[in-house]
Amino acid sequence: MKQLFAALLVVLVSGCTVIPGAHIPSGDYSNADDEDAFDLEDQVDIYAITPGLLAEQLAQSESEQPLLNDSLEAELQEYDYVVNRGDVLNITVWDHPELTIPQGSDRSPSEAGNWVHSDGTIFYPYVGKVEVAGLKVTEIRDILRERLVEYIQDPQVDVTVAAFRSKRVFLTGELKQPGTQPITNVPLTLVEAISKAGGLTEFADWTDVTLTRDSETRRFSLRELYQSGNTRQNVLLRPSDIVHVSRNDAAKVFVLGEVVEPQSIKFGRSDITLAEALTDSGGFAQATADASGVFVVRKAPEGSDKIANVYQLNARNATALVLADQFKLEPRDIVYVTAAPIARWNRLIAQILPTAQAIYFFARAEDEVMNN
């Protein structure tokens, strides 16, 4: 019996290093036998959530000036529509109604206009076939005027596009009215296209809007555009562009550890603070949580030599929850509430006790048999 209990004591003492339960251990995770092993503590930066940290983050956000997209402004200034196959032109020669196709009340401009054929040409009286595909309306106007001079003295020609049918962009995803939109003589930007599509649905992730052009995909954030005035998140659309608005399923935070209801929380359109995440999860598990160990684990920025940034809140004093209400979470953050040491010890005892009881009763039964 003494030997059995001595062995049990050794198991209990060694178990202190492998106590089960929700907690964040520390120490050297390197393994001399593993070539790919590393020291975890060297791979993370740890920050305490204090008034100083929050003030520093606030000052940084306030110092960020709106980023202006100069290239977009230049493109808008130089934009001019180029006619292509399928478009319908409306050509007017002033004081010569015989050269202008009558519209009437039963014919719209697109029905009465000059359709650009599949070979890129139109037919016009006196002039004949004219190559117009790939030209601007001003260039088409000059060509017609030069050719009509042989038949009309000082012709006054006007050319407009009655129907834009050759170019379009495609909008998919979480939009109220997804579909196609034509490219017209009015430049169409990413924000304007989304607005014409009825705006975003309640399930849209406005931080994840992708634009696919010529087999290349770029990602834009409408949140930065609307909230921070970053116009670099807007772009002039071109023919055959594909705009996709993702769902917000992936934009969530994870609350784990010693809370009443561990869960994932979707981000939505507004910010989520640490206090809101804890509240939505039912708050601390009063019997087991260590309020001094509230951690936020966040992936390190691109280009960093770290794998994560860890922010710790000591909420043992309830007034510290004011700091939690000011600490904004980011998508894919992991909120982790550690277990109190006594809770981890109780879990160890709960796992070992059935084994200890079995050993005790087995030894006692064996002694009774030997004594009889």
Results as ranks from 00 to 15, higher is better:
221 S>T: 07
328 K>D: 00
88 V>Q: 01
198 G>Y: 15
234 N>C: 04
89 L>P: 01
270 S>P: 07
266 K>I: 08
164 F>G: 08
269 R>A: 11
63 S>Q: 15
169 V>T: 08
100 T>V: 04
261 E>T: 02
370 M>T: 14
327 F>T: 00
310 V>W: 00
94 W>L: 12
117 H>S: 07
229 G>Y: 08
116 V>H: 01
233 Q>G: 04
351 Q>A: 06
290 D>V: 07
231 T>E: 10
51 P>E: 09
331 P>H: 06
181 Q>D: 06
81 Y>A: 09
25 P>E: 14
335 V>M: 01
166 S>A: 15
344 R>K: 11
184 T>M: 06
45 D>I: 11
360 Y>T: 03
247 R>M: 06
318 A>D: 10
7 A>F: 03
49 I>S: 01
113 G>C: 06
11 V>G: 14
170 F>A: 13
75 E>K: 12
318 A>Q: 09
300 A>Q: 05
200 L>K: 13
138 T>Y: 02
27 G>F: 15
214 D>Y: 13
354 P>I: 02
35 E>T: 08
182 P>R: 12
125 P>L: 00
326 Q>D: 08
305 D>V: 12
277 A>Q: 06
246 S>F: 06
224 E>P: 02
290 D>Y: 10
142 D>I: 10
289 A>S: 07
31 N>R: 14
52 G>M: 06
166 S>Q: 15
59 A>D: 15
213 R>T: 12
302 E>A: 13
366 E>I: 03
33 D>T: 07
193 A>S: 09
187 P>A: 15
89 L>T: 01
125 P>R: 00
360 Y>W: 11
363 A>P: 01
138 T>A: 10
354 P>N: 03
363 A>N: 12
76 L>P: 07
267 F>T: 02
249 D>E: 10
295 F>D: 13
372 N>W: 08
343 A>F: 03
262 P>F: 01
21 G>I: 04
14 S>W: 05
23 H>F: 09
127 V>C: 02
56 E>N: 14
312 Q>S: 11
131 E>Y: 14
341 P>W: 11
301 P>Y: 00
